[in-house]
Write a protein that binds this DNA or RNA. Sequence first.
DNA 1: TATTGTTATACTCTATAACTATA
DNA 2: TATAGTTATAGAGTATAACAATA
Lengths: 155, 155
Amino acid sequence: MSGTHVLDSLLALTQILQADQERELDRRGLTGPRTHLLWVLHHGGPATQVQLSEALAVTPRHITTLVDALDATGLARRKPHPTDRRAVLVHLTDRGTSLMEAMDAEHDELGAALVDGLDHDTVRALIRGLDHVRAQLEGLIAEHERAQREREENP
Amino acid sequence: MSGTHVLDSLLALTQILQADQERELDRRGLTGPRTHLLWVLHHGGPATQVQLSEALAVTPRHITTLVDALDATGLARRKPHPTDRRAVLVHLTDRGTSLMEAMDAEHDELGAALVDGLDHDTVRALIRGLDHVRAQLEGLIAEHERAQREREENP
DNA sequence: TATTGTTATACTCTATAACTATA
DNA sequence: TATAGTTATAGAGTATAACAATA
């Protein structure tokens, strides 16, 4: 009973959170994947497109598209890789950097606002509960994957 | 500090949950929006395309595309509206119905598994925390929208 | 005149396959 | 021969605008 309640709360919250994030991105003319790429550059420094494709878990081909769009809007640029002439290094422009700084600050503000008014013990319990749920979920997924592999190996 | 921790836990959990859901849908040859549409039909009964476009918050045009795909895979069908000859009623086929029953059962199982091992008090605190976070978020959004309207009305 | 659904067009996310230039 | 990135093509989610049939 209450398990379903937790799951439904979580899903509802997820949906509201995402809708809000998307509105904020929209206001700035950004999309989720492009912002993710900017975030990776902001927190990891300049990177090749292959590195970005691993970080975002998408194909290198798609990174080309995303970087093209960010270049067109002046948030990121390509420059030649200093030692490998096949590769490029993608880096933030000044505008890209200050955008990411503003978004990081907003993220911290949002985090603080969400738990404002909750006593310390409830926050602790909330974090503990979320960690537990995550561990359970990861256990389930590992189990699914094991079952999947077995199904593939046997008739 | 711990507010950011809560937000980050929430976002990480969201991501894992979604990736898992998407894998399950993929296994069945479904996509998120199409499944959402099936879910609305399962829990609300046959509906016109305009009603579906309101329920999913997408354009009526896009509902045409989604229903076409579900019709092609035999999960939903159109039939004439009994009283309004402009409209159609979209309804689940038998296959669509049993698919949604199976997915509802899986959803309940997942909910139960997520809190398995947590004592009752922690589950209560978790639910209370999630409700609080959601209320805070909705308050923030309402405030943003108010500020937005003011910005639009004034120079 | 307003509403229901569809044709036409376009943008974005995403993938695979084939190709070029370099290692 | 393997790797970095791009051209070509395609499916899916999404939108707007224009239009037909019916209310």
